[in-house]
C-alpha cells in the first residue's frame, strides 16, 4: 500500500486533530473536577461507578454511583458537548450513599465520577462506555 504525498499529509493532519480533540475535552473535565475538589488531590478507590460496557442507545444509559460515607458525588461525561451530568448531595437520612439514574451520552467516551468522602478527601472512578447511537440529536 503506497501513499501519495497528499494522502500522507491528510493522514498526518487527521492524526494531529485526533490527539488535540480529546485533550481539549479532558481540559474541560479537569477544570470541573478542580472546581468540585477545590484543587485537592483525588485518589482512586472508595467509589464505585456502574455503567454498561456497551450502550446501544446513547439517549438513555443507566448508571449508578455508590461511595460509602460520601457527602457528594459528581458525575461527568468527558465526551459530551457539556460534560457535567449530575451532582448528588446526600443528606442525613440517606441510608446509603448511592443513587442511580439514566443519562445521555453523545458517543463512545469515559464517564467519570468524583466523590467527596466523609473525611473530606476525594475519590475518583471512571468507566468507558461504547455508544452505538449517540444521544444528543443533530
Amino acid at each position: 500500500m503506497e501513499f501519495t504525498r497528499r494522502e500522507t499529509l491528510a493522514l498526518g493532519a487527521g492524526a494531529a486533530l485526533m490527539t488535540v480533540l480529546p485533550f481539549r475535552a479532558n481540559a474541560a473535565v479537569d477544570d470541573l473536577i478542580n472546581e468540585f475538589t477545590g484543587g485537592a488531590a483525588v485518589a482512586d478507590g472508595g467509589l464505585e461507578l456502574t455503567a454498561p460496557e456497551i450502550a446501544e442507545n446513547g439517549n438513555t444509559v443507566p448508571i449508578a454511583v455508590s461511595a460509602e460515607g460520601a457527602t457528594a458525588i459528581m458525575v461527568l461525561a468527558a465526551g459530551n458537548p457539556t460534560p457535567p451530568v449530575a451532582t448528588f448531595k446526600f443528606g442525613k437520612l440517606a441510608a446509603a450513599q448511592e443513587a442511580s439514574t439514566r443519562i445521555r451520552l453523545a458517543g463512545t467516551q469515559d464517564v467519570v465520577a468524583i466523590a467527596q468522602l466523609a473525611d473530606g478527601s476525594f475519590a475518583r472512578a471512571s468507566k468507558t462506555v461504547k455508544v452505538t447511537i449517540g444521544g444528543c440529536g443533530g
Binding site: N59, T60, V61, A77, N80, T82, P83, P84, V85, A86, T87, F88, K89, F90, G91, K92, L93, A94, A99, T101, R102, I103, R104, L105, G135
Partner: peptide, 15 residues
C-alpha cells in the same frame, strides 16, 4: 423536613 438527597441535574440527564 430532614434532607435525604439533593441532586443537581444537567442537560445530560435523559428525558
Amino acid at each position: 423536613g430532614e434532607n435525604v438527597i439533593d441532586v443537581t441535574l444537567e442537560p445530560a440527564i435523559s428525558t
